[in-house]
């Protein structure tokens, strides 16, 4: 590449970040891909959004975007929430790239809280926004100690947590950010996606990248890598969902949200993945 590309919005470099910062992030991404599930530190930059709004994911996306990319942004499964709309608009303005709400049309999908129901392909990349990259953070507060645990693959403590859950509740009570082992080596936080989505990560054809802005960490699951949810032989992991069908499209296999329909306590279940739901309805 010769001169930096200047986009529609004057004064910004392509995709907001300067080229040097993007190169630094790409180096961290490459390291992360080389050591699946391992958290790689990176020099997280100030972004025009507060932490907690996906600044880690945004920086990863900014480093990946090329002029031909088509970006989809989801928040809680939906493309039309404030956060998703503003991130999509941000890149449309600063990079002049095309955006979409269609999973199948996107080349890069930035997400918070969900993995699309439509299986991802090898020519797609999914970028997760991560608030807390350290799966052991709730159990061990010392960073030095958690890095040592990762270094030595010493994950007995995580199983103690699962043991305690089964003892107390009869089952593992973690329903979001359910810990996984990547490639049989690193314990990883999949970000606050429902445990229901965990199996989608296993041997996914698409590259999976995780960006934590506040904690300044990037990690990755390369295509077709084994991702196993932790469990016990006699208490196997189960991807649970509400035992209902979607009130809009009738799906009985998608992840559902319960929504309030009126002020008299009326409720219904609908697909959390709005694009998936619309496609099913259009297809009928």
């Amino acid at each position: 590449m010769t001169a930096p590309m200047i986009s529609q919005a004057d004064g910004y470099n392509f995709a907001y970040l300067d080229e040097q910062t993007k190169r630094m992030i790409r180096r961290s991404i490459l390291k992360a891909v080389a050591v699946p599930g391992h958290q790689v530190p990176f020099g997280s930059r100030e972004m025009p959004l507060p932490y907690g709004w996906g600044t880690g994911g945004i920086q990863v996306t900014a480093a990946l975007l090329g002029t031909d990319d088509v970006l989809k942004v989801i928040d809680q499964g939906a493309d039309d929430t404030t956060n998703a709309v503003s991130i999509r608009r941000f890149f449309a303005r600063t990079a002049g790239i095309a955006t979409t709400t269609r999973t199948a049309e996107a080349t890069i999908i930035q997400t918070r809280h969900r993995i699309p129901e439509t299986p991802l392909r090898a020519d797609q990349i999914i970028v997760y926004q991560v608030p807390q990259p350290e799966p052991l953070s709730g159990l061990e507060s010392s960073r030095t100690e958690t890095s040592r645990m990762h270094g030595l693959a010493d994950y007995g403590l995580m199983h103690v947590k699962l043991y305690e859950d089964i003892t107390r509740y009869g089952h593992v009570s973690i329903s979001y950010d359910y810990p996984v082992m990547v490639g049989g080596r690193y314990l990883m936080a999949p970000s606050p996606i429902p445990a229901f989505d965990n199996p989608k990560m296993d041997r996914m054809a698409a590259l999976q990248l995780f960006g934590a802005g506040r904690e300044k960490r990037i990690y990755a699951v390369p295509p077709y890598t084994e991702v196993r949810s932790l469990d016990f032989d006699d208490h196997p992991f189960r991807a649970s969902r509400a035992p209902h069908t979607c009130n809009l499209c009738g799906a009985d296999d998608s992840y559902l949200d319960e929504v309030v329909t009126d002020d008299k306590g009326g409720r219904m279940f609908v697909c959390s993945d709005t694009d998936h739901c619309e496609e099913r309805r259009d297809g009928r």
Binding site: H159, Y163, F232, H235
Partner: peptide, 10 residues
């Protein structure tokens, strides 16, 4: 210690 050693049967 059993779990750290790899026991996976609750």
């Amino acid at each position: 210690r059993l779990m750290a050693r790899g026991s996976r049967h609750y």
